[in-house]
């Protein structure tokens, strides 16, 4: 290519070189073959800091093709910094179409939420994972935790839940709630709220997890059992909210608290912005929704 034809450096399709993508795909395939097992991989430096989704970006870069449609969410929202910049990144380096609509996306990279709209077969959900090891805070030695996974010694995971009940009277873990995958490996579902755990169970979509700093990839193939750990007398339950979304009136969705002013005013709104917008476009509205003629046009994905 003529150096004068472009004024920026050109990258391979989807930023990573083909050998790296092959290496990551091998790790992904191994992860799919052993659901919930953490596969080590040679994580690369990415043009973003650790903790911003370097693992998820590498997984997405390895599986994305020119025909894919990408959606990126950050805490459920399509319009926050992390989501906007990763979306722009792939638009630039892979020239793929991007969307904010769950139904249209073939690949969704997510930071800590699963969309409210049920996923369908053929879709891929890529999670950004900060700490893949569910036993890490109970047993700091990696040699020991790997042995515990290998020998299926998971009593320690219940020690954490026991501590919760002893201290708070109930299981107080609300995110990164440990799950058992296909009756074998205990897995950290990344710091998604436990509200989303039931959505992982027998989901028709492929779920991939990438931890860049920790250099681990794991996967939940479609229609795989994902069971949240609990006690017989303290069964697993998800968060419930007293009121529906203030903007779209949705119930049984995960809500974020939004501070409105400095006098204690606040409201609870859908954390999944796409779901909320779609419901409002369909005519639903909550008690704080602006008048119908004031509802803004659906926002275009930011560059």
């Amino acid at each position: 290519m003529n150096a004068q034809s472009t004024d920026i450096a050109t990258y391979n399709f989807a930023y990573l070189d083909e050998q790296t993508k092959r290496m990551i795909r091998r790790a992904i395939l191994k992860g799919i073959a052993i659901p919930g097992y953490q596969v080590p991989f040679a994580s690369r430096e990415m043009p973003m800091p650790y903790g911003w989704g370097t693992g998820g970006v590498q997984v997405t870069a390895s599986i994305i093709g020119p025909d894919d449609v990408l959606k990126v969410i950050d805490q459920g929202a399509d319009d926050t910094t992390n989501a906007v910049s990763i979306r722009a990144f792939f638009k630039k380096v892979a020239k793929v179409d991007v969307t904010t609509e769950t139904a249209k996306a073939t690949i969704m990279q997510t930071r800590h939420r699963i969309p409210e709209q049920p996923l369908t077969a053929g879709q891929v959900l890529v999670f950004q994972v900060p700490i893949p090891e569910p036993l890490r805070f109970l047993e700091p030695r990696e040699t020991e935790t790997r042995k515990m996974h290998a020998l299926e010694e998971y009593g320690l995971m219940h020690v954490k839940l026991y501590e919760d009940i002893a201290k708070h009277g109930r299981i107080a873990t609300t995110y990164a709630y440990p799950v058992k995958v296909e009756g074998r490996y205990v897995m950290d579902p990344s710091p998604t709220p436990k509200f989303d755990n039931p959505k992982m169970h027998r989901s028709p979509a492929l779920q991939l997890f990438g931890a860049g700093r920790e250099k681990r990839i794991y996967a939940v193939p479609p229609f795989t059992d994902v069971v949240s750990l609990d006690f017989e007398d303290h069964p697993f339950e998800v968060q419930t909210f007293d009121q529906p979304c203030a903007l779209c009136g949705a119930e049984n969705v995960y809500l974020d608290e939004v501070i409105l002013d400095d006098h204690g005013g606040h409201m609870f709104v859908c954390s999944d912005t796409d779901h909320c917008e779609k419901r409002r476009a369909d005519g639903h509205h909550g008690h704080l929704a602006p008048e119908a003629h004031l509802v803004p046009e659906k926002t275009e994905p930011a560059e």
Binding site: G155, H158, V159, Y162, I165, A166
Partner: peptide, 20 residues
């Protein structure tokens, strides 16, 4: 972890799943 969890760990390790 608490004294109770220390004592209970072995029980949970052999599969007891009843908090009470």
């Amino acid at each position: 972890v608490s004294a109770g969890a220390n004592v209970g760990e072995r029980l949970m390790a052999v599969g007891d799943r009843h908090y009470g």
